[in-house]
């Protein structure tokens, strides 16, 4: 690998994707043929983000599915984007992971070349451009929809952004959810949310939201006590991005179990039979 030197007219500046293109490595997913081959590919599912007092909490389940099969049980969907921000993904797993990797590098590359980091707004716009560039692949079924959240060092608050497949960028003031279980997870968060929430309460709420999503959406994975696999939860505040330990998630989940006695949950433990209706065999 030789040293990449450019004349001023073709210099990519701090843009890492631009640098890759100049070096003949196209970072974007290209589609060979129109809609003729619907592929069965891995999909990652539900992620949520909640704004708290002084920061943001992000969480994601661990399941990846290929059609009706579970293809991976411990996939990570919540990542640090840099020291003060995180990105969570839902959608086609392959392109989504690649998008995160490129996004992380893009931010770090900018910071090193320019000597200072991008503003939170700038980071969100970068991600929005990457999602938009992915639109042709999304039209073929490889949809990637991220959530982006971080601590805005200039304003001193946590902020979170939702995206759509066209790269549309929407700042949410309270909470956001995306992925197949987002309807259920989003509803739980919506009901439990309070303004200026304590981060610890927000973590519990996120865990509950993912649990409820897993309860009703087959593509969302619940806590796996057999293998010790728990959702990934990260807190981002003035101290930066911090992923919570699995042990802590386990403890909080066990606390949640106490609230989930059969009488408190929809449907009943005996397979749906009610006392007044005898099941005929």
């Amino acid at each position: 690998m030789t040293l990449p030197f450019f004349t001023p007219d073709v210099d990519p500046g701090p843009d890492f994707a631009g640098l890759l293109r100049r070096q003949g490595r196209d970072p974007e997913t290209r589609i060979a043929d129109a809609a003729s081959h619907p592929l069965t590919i891995m999909h990652g599912t539900t992620v949520v983000a909640i704004r708290t007092a002084g920061g943001v909490v992000m969480a994601g389940d661990r399941r990846a599915t290929s059609g009706n099969l579970i293809s991976h049980r411990s996939m990570e969907k919540v990542f640090p984007a840099d020291r003060f921000s995180g990105v969570a993904i839902a959608g086609a797993a392959g392109p989504a992971m690649e998008m995160v990797r490129l996004f992380q590098l893009q931010l770090e590359h900018y910071e090193k070349v320019e000597g200072h980091h991008l503003s939170l707004e700038g980071k969100a716009n970068q991600l929005s451009q990457m999602v938009r560039a992915h639109l042709p692949a999304a039209m073929q079924g490889m949809v990637v929809v991220p959530l982006f959240a971080g601590y805005d060092l200039q304003r001193g608050v946590g902020r979170l952004f939702e995206f759509d497949v066209t790269g549309g960028r929407y700042e949410e003031l309270h909470h956001a959810a995306t992925g197949s279980g987002s309807l259920h997870a989003g509803t739980v968060v919506k009901i439990g949310y309070r303004a200026e929430m304590d981060p610890s309460d927000a973590v519990d709420l996120a865990i509950r939201a993912l649990f409820e999503a897993a309860d009703d959406d087959s593509a969302t994975g619940g806590p796996d006590l057999v293998r010790g696999i728990f959702p990934i939860v990260a807190v981002i505040d003035a101290d930066g991005y911090r992923r919570l330990e699995d042990d802590e998630i386990r403890r909080r989940f066990e606390g949640l179990l106490g609230d989930l006695s059969p009488s408190n949950t929809r449907g009943s433990a005996d397979g749906g039979a009610r006392p007044d209706q005898e099941v005929e065999r």
């Binding site: 690998m1 040293l3 990449p4 890492f16 770090e108």
Partner: peptide, 9 residues
Amino acid sequence: VRHADMKGY
């Protein structure tokens, strides 16, 4: 920086 980031990628 470019050399290193490209290689890491």
